[in-house]
Amino acid sequence: MHRTGELYGQFKTLEQQKESATLGMWIFLITEVMFFGGIMLAYALNRHVYFPAFAAGSNTLSLKLGGFNTVVLLASSFTMAVAVWSSQVGKKTLISIFLLLTITLGFVFFGVKYVEYSQKFHHHLVPGKKFDIFYCVNNPAGCPDVDAPELMEESKLLDEAKAADPDLNAHAQLYYSAYFGMTGLHALHMVIGAGLLFWLLKGSLAGRFTPQWNTPVDLVGLYWHFVDIVWIYLFPLLYLIDRHK
């Protein structure tokens, strides 16, 4: 279609164009809800069936890292919301600053996620042939980042879980399948979101976004908040299953 300024040829007015774009984004987000819904269902069923294994698996996650990432992601949602506000009121420098802040927080999240993932990898907690929930308990030398009291605690928890579920290792592997499936899918969405943020940053540095036309900022904002919402659910579902023991 031919472009006349910021109005695409198939539309009659900018309002109609913005209305269509926003509606399209919301519908897209609903498809995302259903997309995550499928894996949520797999999680819910297996958690119901293998609760001891899921509780044990959850307790091997680092609450500190997970909690820190939750705060980071919520904060990035806040900075994104302010970036949208800046574009609505036409504060062009502020848009770039807050987009940059959002990107930075996103990368902090990736960094922490990388630490978590590599830890799980070293602890033999990635689903597959080498998966062993007892690896750190049996090989303290292989897990130098876990100190002795923590190992004692983990050993006690795993023994209890093993008493409740003789096939603990297989079922803990299901928990980790859910963990990597859900957080991996979430991280993939964040990578796409980060790419979109860079694209926005390029546009905002060129001064393209005005109070009259800021649809891309608004829509990427919607997407970024949605990814935040997914994490809002993932955090308690994965990290906080059975912490009170």
């Binding site: 908040h225 949605f226 935040d228 659910y233």
Partner: peptide
């Protein structure tokens, strides 16, 4: 999530 949807979004 409701707060995010209602206000941020």
């Amino acid at each position: 999530a409701t707060l995010v949807v209602l206000f941020f979004m």
